[in-house]
Structures are given as C-alpha cells and as structure tokens.
C-alpha cells in the first residue's frame, strides 16, 4: 500500500517534470518586475522571488532538471563503481583527488558561450564520473567479503559456471549495495549541485534547479516572509522518502 502510494507520488512528480511547460503557468525566467516578493496565492501559487519570477513555475522546471539529472549521475557513478571497484588502488587515488579543484579547472576551461543547459548537463555528468569512488570502496569491501564466503565456495563445488555464479549468487548482494548507494548519491548530488552553484559551477541564471532554489534557504529570515521558499526542500524530502519506499 505504502509502496503503491510512493510510486504514485514519484510518477506524479516525474509527469509534472515531463510536462513542465504545460503545468507551469509562466516561463521560469519571466520577470514580473512589478510584483517582486509577492505573497503566495492569487496569480502566483507560491509567490514570486526577488525578481518577480513565479516560484511555482521555477519549481516545476527545476524538478525537471534535478529529478532527471541527479539520478542519472548517481546511476553513472554506481555503474562505474561496479566496473572499476576491483582496482582498489585506483579507488583510493580517486578518493584522494581534490575534485573541487578539478571542477573549478573544468569550469575555467569550458567555453564561455556554453549555454546554461549544456553546462548543467556537464556538471552532473562530471559529478557522476567523479563520484564513482565512494560506492566503489563499499563494493570493494563487500566483494572481499563475498570472496571469503562459504556459499561461493559451495557454488563452485557444485560445478556452476563462474558467470552463472556471478549472476545468480553474487549480483543480488551487489545489487542491494548498488541500490543503497544510489539512494545515498541522489540527494548528495542534488545538494552538491547547490554547493557547486556557490563556486559558480552549478546552474547558471536564469535556469532554476533544486540546488539554486535551496540556496535561498541560506537566509532564514526569508522563510518567514514566504514559507513557500521551503517548497523545494519539502519536495526533495518527499521524493527521497518515496524512492526509499519504492526501492526497499
């Protein structure tokens, strides 16, 4: 029952994201300059931001970006981790790399006429590639454990082909870890995008993302003025809880 509800919510959110142009009443970058900081209700469902942009429309478009790109990046990381986890020294090396500087260098090398969408795509792609070492380390530890396990030896003693052993016996263990890692990485990437935004590597104006909408929460007093500023946070938490429920 809860699982059904959770998947229904996820599907609803995904549909909203997919049909953003139809659902959002306004363009995400339309500035109603006569109504900055408008309160919720009336023409603006969740009010407007400092430039008079409709918060609801921005949230819908931001969802579109974050809900597609963050899981995609997380999936890339987990897949890479699975493929590369056997190279434990490579994992250690990658864990010790100062990624933030690589991101800065990447941004510095990127042509300036890279559009906002291309650059956000690139940012998430890089996060996906850069993030593989964390899950890899976990895979590595559990693969080591699996190697020592009695059931693997038993499976070998029964004459099962190694591929079959990997698929039937080993994969269920790795899949559980992969799912858990995926669940950890999705919100981590959404938040990383927000903090990368602070050093200029996130979504550029005027594109909205959960990250840069969340960044508004840095000013606590803004929330009392318009509680709908919390909406992206609420949505993020809802999606995370539903993901948890569905993949459990």
């Amino acid at each position: 029952m809860r699982r059904k509800l959770a998947s229904a919510i996820l599907i609803l959110v995904a549909l909203c994201a997919l049909f953003a142009p139809a659902i959002a009443p306004f363009d995400y970058d339309r500035q109603f300059r006569e109504s900055p900081h408008a309160a919720a209700g009336g023409q603006f469902l969740m009010g407007t931001d400092n430039l008079g942009r409709d918060r609801f429309s921005r949230l819908v478009y931001a969802t579109r970006i974050s809900i597609v790109l963050a899981p995609a990046a997380a999936a890339v990381s987990v897949l890479l981790a699975l493929m590369l986890s056997r190279f434990s020294s490579l994992t250690t090396l990658c864990l010790s790399l100062p990624w933030i500087f690589l991101f800065i260098i990447m941004r510095a090398l990127l042509p300036l006429d890279t559009g906002p969408f291309a650059s956000i795509l690139l940012t998430f792609a890089l996060m996906g590639v850069a993030g593989w070492a964390w899950p890899a380390r976990i895979f590595n530890a559990s693969i080591r454990q699996i190697r020592q396990s009695g059931w693997l030896l038993q499976a070998r003693a029964s004459g099962m082909p190694s591929r079959r052993i990997a698929l039937i016996h080993v994969w269920p263990h790795l899949r559980a870890i992969a799912v858990a890692q995926f669940r950890v990485l999705v919100p981590a990437y959404i938040l990383s995008e927000a903090s990368l935004g602070l050093i200029g590597l996130g979504v550029a104006e005027p594109l909205p993302s959960w990250g840069n909408l969340l960044a508004e929460l840095q000013r606590p007093q803004a929330v009392s003025a318009n509680p709908w500023i919390l909406a992206p946070l609420g949505l993020l938490m809802l999606v995370m809880i539903c993901l948890e429920e569905v993949s459990a």
Binding site: G150, W151, L153, A157
Partner: peptide
C-alpha cells in the same frame, strides 16, 4: 565438481547464500 565428485560442506550456516 558436482558431477563426478559431490561435496557436502562442513558448516551449513555459511555455505548457503542467504539471499
């Protein structure tokens, strides 16, 4: 293995894949 030589391992607790 398993065909010509059958094998029954010693510790049943760990020799079965619990998943």
């Amino acid at each position: 293995r398993g065909k010509l030589i059958g094998y029954v391992p010693q510790s049943p607790g760990t020799a079965l894949n619990e998943r």
